[in-house]
Design a protein around this nucleic acid. Structure first.
Length: 420
RNA sequence: GCGACCGUGGUGUAACGGUUAACACUGGAGCUUGUGGAGCUCUCGAUCAGGGUUCGAUUCCCUGCGGCCGCCCCA
């Protein structure tokens, strides 16, 4: 390699490297998400991280595409964006084949998405998020199901119902209030966004009044929102969820969700712990989004759950799984002459579905054991002259120090029964 | 995009503007040629980058880069 200045070992700003222990956790999260989605009949889909920039221009403002996304021009002069979220992509995919897809369709994916923003805790430039969506069903059952999926994932990650809370509201409440108070359609999106940040803003009422330039209406609006504590729909939703074993839903009409495209039920999952009291993820119903692609209206409801906040949640609640490598067994080669025999043993165990790492480093057995232990490999077998002659192998359990000596054809069976 | 704080081996820390940048852990080698976690010995390894002030900068100043936090924005 040509000698140049040293290349930095740091990863790109705002993105992460996943070393084996971190990748283990990533896979743990993904496998639980996948499993629960599939238990509810959701099918996995995927798509490229590259999208035409136009996909996001049509839905949001020009500024957001330019400043908050990774957008560039390719060699053919096309404007390309690294997807900042998955919903437009999945809406595009469903719209493209709307005549062929049997509805209702249940789809999920765990894509990485990119945002060009200043990184801070819980917000990086790249993260992964589960997207689960249900297309072509508009009933309350669909709303309840999507919440039950979210709930099921939290439970499968080890969370108790008291550890989190599902706050639910309905965009139609806001729409009705805007209507009755008389907020012009041009302002509703901005008012909603302001309401979303309400808890964080000191001079909320003043800013609201400024925005709609009408003090009386602002006060009336706030009063209406505070007066509306629930609706028949939300109460029925709660009942349905309780029948499904979901008992930590609360109605909270102050939640709004930032996006404009929601049209009905919206929800946010909150961490209830003191240290990490915040919104973990959320979703809702968006019945009009597919019309963007000229498709007939398709009702849709879904949610997105990010890996960064999920990790924070597991840490806060002591739910982190301990690292276990995929490798079940290390075979230590005692001396050169035994290498061929060890390789054959490894191959025959692999045929029996045992994951085996062969250590042909030539180091002392003690060092090989220490290395296996450091790598958290649960078992080790040393192969040397004794084993070659006897055909019997001593399996050492690194955690307990226990040993058992068996012939080759009984090793796999022993490992599987010990590993459970 | 704006603001605060921070930046010393792989990790965690130390060094009034003044010797050869210290210590612990980790890594490597050995004491120990077939069985680990201990101990001892040896050893590799750092001042984020560039500029400025100064006889002298890890230390002070500026710019950039990075981290973290808040704002903006929000899946």
């Amino acid at each position: 390699m040509a000698k140049r200045g040293k290349v930095s070992t740091e990863s790109y700003k705002g993105v992460r490297d996943f070393y084996p222990e971190e990748q283990f956790l990533q896979r743990y999260l993904f496998e639980h998400m996948e499993r629960v989605c599939e238990l509810f009949g959701y099918e996995e889909y995927s798509a490229s991280i590259l999208e035409p920039a136009e996909l996001y221009r049509s839905k949001t403002s020009e500024e957001i595409v330019g400043e908050q996304t990774y957008t560039f021009t390719d060699r053919g002069g096309r404007e390309v964006t690294l997807r900042p979220e998955m919903t437009p992509t999945v809406a595009r995919m469903v719209a493209a084949r709307i005549r062929d897809i049997p509805l209702p369709a249940r789809w999920y994916s765990i894509p990485n998405v990119f945002r060009y923003e200043r990184p801070q805790k819980g917000r990086l430039r790249e993260h992964w998020q589960l997207n689960a969506d249900l297309f072509g069903a508009e009933g309350i059952e669909a709303d309840a199901e999507i919440i039950a999926v979210a709930h099921g994932i939290m439970r499968s990650l080890g969370a108790e119902e008291r550890d989190f809370e599902i706050r639910v509201s309905d965009r139609r409440i806001l729409d009705a209030i805007y209507d009755s108070v008389g907020i012009a359609k041009d302002f509703t999106a901005e008012v909603t966004r302001l309401l979303d940040r309400r808890a964080k803003i000191d001079d909320f009422e003043k800013r609201l009044a400024d925005l709609i330039s009408h003090e009386k209406k602002a006060a009336q609006l706030v009063a209406e929102i505070e007066r509306t504590t629930s609706t028949a729909y939300l109460e029925e939703l709660r009942t349905q969820l309780e029948h499904m074993g979901v008992r930590n839903m609360v109605v909270d009409t102050t939640i709004t969700r930032g996006f404009d495209y929601y049209t009905g039920m919206i929800f946010e999952v909150y961490d209830t712990s003191e240290e990490n009291k915040r919104s973990l993820f959320g979703g809702g119903r968006y019945d009009n989004l597919l019309e963007l692609f000229g498709a007939e209206p398709v009702p849709a409801v879904g949610f997105a759950m990010g890996d960064v906040t999920a990790r924070d949640f597991l840490e806060t609640h002591n739910l982190m799984p301990s690292y276990t490598p995929a490798t079940e067994l290390m075979i230590a080669v005692v001396e050169k002459e035994s290498a061929a025999h060890a390789i054959q043993l490894a191959q025959s165990l692999r045929r029996e579905d045992v994951t085996v790492a062969l250590n042909f480093s030539g180091k002392r057995i003690g060092d090989q054991i220490r290395q296996a232990d450091k790598m958290k490999i649960p078992f080790i077998i040393a192969v040397g002259g004794k084993e070659r002659e006897s055909g019997r192998y001593t399996i050492k359990n690194l955690a307990s120090g226990n040993e058992i000596t068996l012939p080759a054809d009984r090793i796999a069976e022993h490992l599987f029964s010990s590993l459970g």
